[in-house]
């Protein structure tokens, strides 16, 4: 018996199946590019160690030979140790940073390679280009978070006294906010064409306001007010609470609530900005320019 082809509709006719095929093709392509450069292994293994190391060693220098600075730190912040605290903060910052570069820069990279315009003209679901770039990135980031945790425990001696399921829950709930921002960012970047400046701005805001390496209480009140509007503040606090303390669900309940709200907001905004950019690109005809 002759079997019918599973997929008969061409890409020219838009069906859900075609959209999924386009998405799968983009994921495959992004994955191939990702593993083509073996340096990703270095990024995965080495960055989680050396990035927090800069801050941890500065804290060590500030502590002084006799530990008098550390005593002052304990008086000022109420924290007993800083290594785990900084390791978790910098780990979340790295996650957002990589999403901004990779997901946020996905369309811009296509623009620079000169393939964006031709892809845009093909009868495919355009959001697939962005979504497809996010999938391999999300997988690699989840692996990186896992590797980071192991490295902090074994190399830095961080004691993860909290709960692994709660930590995973926080990471899961954080995904829409982190990637929603990446989607909105990607659309803005191909319109404004200055990816570096935008990445520096956004990751800079996270670095300065969200308490990556120090407690928020150290900041002036106006900075604490700004931090309250940034989802990364809640992600960092929640992961620290879930992984390092024994507070349990109570310690992260408020953060989770805020992250759900921020996630919905950023995902909606990300898709809205993408739709706006898509329309604008057709009106101005400038999508191929860089």
């Amino acid at each position: 018996m002759r079997s019918e082809p599973i997929v008969s509709a061409p890409l020219g006719r838009s069906t859900s199946l075609n959209e999924m095929r386009a998405l799968a093709a983009v994921i495959r392509r992004e994955w191939t590019i990702f593993i083509r450069y073996p340096s990703w292994i270095i990024s995965l293994l080495i960055w989680p160690i050396i990035f927090p190391m800069g801050y941890i060693l500065t804290a060590r220098a500030l502590s002084g030979v006799d530990g008098s600075g550390l005593t002052q730190f304990q008086i000022n912040t109420g924290l007993t140790e800083y290594v785990g605290y900084m390791a978790v903060g910098t780990m979340i910052w790295m996650w957002q940073n990589v999403v901004l570069w990779n997901v946020g820069g996905a369309l811009r990279n296509e623009q620079m390679r000169g393939t964006l315009e031709s892809n845009w003209l093909s009868p495919t679901w355009r959001f697939a280009y962005l979504l497809g770039a996010s999938v391999p990135q999300l997988i690699s980031m989840l692996v990186m978070l896992l590797v980071s945790g192991l490295e902090y425990a074994f190399l830095f001696g961080v004691k993860f006294q909290g709960s692994l399921p709660l930590t995973l829950l926080v990471i899961l709930v954080s995904i829409p906010a982190v990637y929603g921002l990446g989607f909105a960012f990607a659309s803005l970047v191909i319109t404004m064409k200055e990816a570096n400046a935008f990445v520096f701005l956004v990751r800079g805001i996270v670095m300065v306001f969200c308490g990556v390496t120090y407690p928020l209480a150290i900041q002036p009140q106006w900075m604490q007010n700004v931090a309250a509007w940034l989802p990364q503040t809640y992600i960092i606090h929640a992961v620290r609470s879930a992984a390092l303390s024994t507070e349990g669900f109570q310690g992260i309940a408020h953060d989770l609530q805020m992250l759900v709200l921020f996630g919905a907001f950023w995902l909606a905004l990300g898709m809205a900005v993408f739709a706006w950019m898509e329309r604008r690109a057709r009106q101005t005809g400038a999508i191929g320019q860089y």
Partner: peptide, 16 residues
């Protein structure tokens, strides 16, 4: 300056 700002606040936390 963005890289330096966290170090500034960290420094304050370790200072008297």
């Amino acid at each position: 300056l963005v890289w330096i700002a966290p170090v500034y606040f960290m420094g304050l936390a370790f200072s008297h």
